[in-house]
Amino acid sequence: MSYHSVKLIKRPELEITEDIFNIVTQDIPTPAEGEVLVKLSHLSLDPAMRGWMSADENSYIAPVKLGDTMRASGIGEVVKSNNERFPVGARVMGLMGLTEYAISDGNGLNVIPKELPAEAILSVIALPGITAYHGVFEVLKPEAGQTLIVTAAAGSVGSLVGQMAKNLGLTVVGVAGSDEKCQWLTKELGFDHAINYKDADFVEQLTQATPNGIDLFFENTGGLAQGPIFERMNPHGRIAVCGLIADYQKAEPAPGPSWVGIIKRRLTIQGFTMPDHFHRIPEYGQALGAMLGKGELKYRAHVIEGIENATSGINLLFDGKNTGKLIVKL
């Protein structure tokens, strides 16, 4: 029997084009001693994949080697096992790649409950959830009564950040790229304000939504919104820099905020990436599962069908056309 996987065969120059991938057909492998064979059911498409495709060795995680299966998170079932920690029938999650089957020695695999929908796991308990949780609780460290703003607020990470902050008693402002997304943030998720950064009066709306300034800024995008938000930061404010998706497909990134402003406002700015904290996934996953079980976190998923559509589907993230966590169902 055979299966399909997506190989990275070229580095993207700027935009992700389909010619950098090759979908190959291979024989289903047999696990060696200590290994398991996993049949994938759902794959996660994330903005971080753009960085993993680059040739930059000076990053938080090594790039995918040309000819290797493209890195991606996924959920699947163990169908053959030579590893007692992962018996046949176990449902697992991990960085198994854009593939229908994967061999693993168990490192980085986590057993997950069978009763939870795959969409809920990939939207809340997987990378988006642990990223939001770490950024909120470990980097921003919010206090009730503060004002928090999050960019890409309707995305898989931003939407969770805003909900966590609201549950802690903060005033939450979301920035998104369409009126529909803004309405979802306020009407469904309970954000206090949501602003379309494409509006001509974005700066005026931002000022009205933050009369007492901004204490905490969860940055996912860079781009047009960053400068005006930075100018609204309060003294001793904190900024968590999680992503800059507006710059990922540019030859030159946009200039950042003035360091003079950082000094005058005595700001704390911290970039973070989750591979530094993968050892805390069980802890974070338990906390997120509890929030989900209590109904404290809502999500929505954008599901595309078939591994053959994964390569074109990635660009939905960078075009802002996805409505929720982007998932490939196999």
Rank of each mutant, 00 (worst) to 15 (best):
V172F: 13
G174W: 12
A176V: 07
A176M: 10
G177Q: 11
S178R: 12
D179H: 07
D179P: 00
K181G: 14
C182R: 05
C182W: 11
W184T: 13
L185A: 09
T186R: 09
K187L: 10
E188I: 03
E188Q: 15
L189Y: 14
L189V: 11
G190D: 07
G190A: 06
G190P: 01
F191Q: 04
F191N: 02
F191A: 11
D192W: 04
D192H: 12
H193L: 01
H193G: 02
H193F: 14
I195G: 08
Y197V: 12
D199Q: 15
A200L: 09
D201L: 02
F202C: 00
V203A: 11
E204R: 10
E204N: 09
E204S: 13
E204M: 04
Q205I: 04
Q205N: 14
Q205V: 00
Q205S: 04
L206D: 01
Q208K: 15
A209W: 11
T210G: 09
T210K: 04
T210C: 15
P211T: 07
P211V: 08
P211Y: 06
P211H: 06
N212A: 12
G213V: 06
G213N: 13
I214K: 11
I214L: 15
E219A: 05
E219L: 05
T221S: 08
T221R: 00
G222N: 01
G223N: 08
G223V: 06
L224D: 13
L224Y: 12
A225R: 01
A225K: 01
A225Q: 11
A225P: 00
A225G: 12
G227Y: 04
P228W: 06
I229G: 07
F230C: 04
E231I: 03
R232L: 13
R232Y: 01
N234V: 09
N234K: 12
P235S: 14
P235T: 13
R238C: 06
R238Y: 08
R238F: 09
I239K: 08
I239P: 05
I239D: 13
A240I: 03
A240Y: 08
V241S: 02
G243P: 01
G243V: 05
L244N: 00
L244F: 06
I245A: 01
A246P: 00
D247N: 15
D247C: 07
K250I: 05
A251C: 02
A251N: 10
E252V: 14
P253A: 14
P253G: 03
P253H: 04
P253Y: 12
A254G: 08
P255R: 06
G256A: 06
G256D: 03
G256Y: 08
G256M: 07
P257L: 12
W259G: 02
W259I: 14
W259C: 02
V260W: 12
G261T: 08
G261H: 10
